[in-house]
């Protein structure tokens, strides 16, 4: 049966066994597993973070995954990019990853684009997640290795109202947070924390990194993504809602830093920058819309 012909997706006996350890969790259950099956996750960057996150998400039963990266596999990638081997050197990361994930996660519908994501190419590239995004079952993982790409991706996610989970790692420092303009606009966006004129001294290619540090951040990114997707049907928060402990607001309104030397995590509340060049316009439009409906 093709995915499009399937009106109401269901789990077969094999699915129940495969995903049993997830279904056992009351927070997931059969309904949650089915929900994941209808989700589409876009992963930009198929390096250490992107590959590991893709593996976790594909094997967890996410229905569709789109991989985007114009890089090719290099020998120096192999200590962290565990899906690749020497035989893959010189090939496009996104295409090799798609092939290997298809074997590991036969239930997952995979798409691969061996190209860079730009604001221009994004329209066509993301057209096939539009339906999932309207149904609040789409999400984008930023797993890129430079600040310019991260700024473009944030802008794209704000423009498309696509939830974003951003993770990064260089040397012994990791950072993680999620942005969702529909569910928690008060948390702001990537630009609210790191505006366009931010100077980035660190990246993996000039700083070095240990593989397991990348693994920690990729696991957290995948974990955050799964929980946001599972809670996507929770009520949308209005602008005045304050984050509550244990709720999804808590996951959306936090900025986490990981120190891979001391193994310590630090979290801080995110705040929207009222003058943010990227998310302020959509905030103003939404607030105007909300006021209009209140005064009706």
């Amino acid at each position: 049966m093709s995915a499009t012909a399937q009106k109401r997706p269901s789990l077969d006996d094999k699915d129940f066994i495969r995903y049993s350890r997830q279904i056992f969790l009351p927070e997931v259950g059969e309904a949650g597993q089915l929900q994941l099956k209808q989700c589409h996750v876009v992963i930009i960057g198929c390096g250490g973070l992107g590959l590991l996150a893709a593996q976790y998400l594909a094997c967890a039963g996410i229905g569709s995954i789109t991989l985007v990266d114009d890089d090719r596999v290099e020998l120096s990638n192999l200590p962290r990019q565990l899906l690749f081997s020497e035989a893959d050197i010189g090939q496009h990361k996104a295409l090799v990853a798609k092939q290997k994930l298809a074997v590991l996660a036969p239930n997952c519908q995979l798409f691969a684009f061996a190209q860079m994501l730009t604001l221009d190419s994004a329209e066509s590239l993301l057209a096939h997640v539009a339906t999932a995004n309207r149904q609040q079952s789409a999400l984008l993982l930023d797993c890129t290795d430079n600040l310019a790409a991260r700024h473009s991706i944030n802008q794209l996610c704000i423009e498309h109202a696509l939830p974003l989970v951003s993770a990064s790692i260089a040397a012994f420092n990791g950072q993680l947070f999620a942005v969702d303009q529909r569910r928690f606009p008060a948390g702001g966006c990537y630009h609210c924390v790191f505006p366009n004129d931010t100077y980035a001294p660190q990246n993996c290619s000039n700083q070095g990194v240990l593989g397991p540090s990348v693994g920690v951040m990729a696991s957290m990114q995948a974990l955050l993504a799964i929980q946001l997707l599972l809670s996507a049907t929770a009520p949308i928060l209005d602008h005045s809602t304050k984050p509550q402990a244990g709720g999804v607001e808590h996951l959306l309104g936090q900025f986490w830093r990981f120190d891979a030397k001391s193994l310590q995590w630090h979290s801080a509340r995110l705040t929207r920058d009222s003058e943010c060049e990227v998310c302020a316009p959509s905030w103003n439009a939404n607030t105007a819309q909300a006021l209009k409906s209140v005064h009706k």
């Binding site: 290795d145 600040l147 950072q175 980035a200 001294p201 990348v214 801080a268 705040t271």
Partner: peptide
């Protein structure tokens, strides 16, 4: 424990017992 947007840094004064963390952006992946 709250991220302060950069453009507000000039208008916020340090208070006694404030805990301030500054850190570089990490963009690697």
């Amino acid at each position: 424990e709250t991220v302060v947007p950069r453009h507000r840094w000039s208008s916020i004064l340090c208070h006694h017992e404030d805990k301030i963390d500054v850190f570089a952006v990490v963009a690697g992946g």
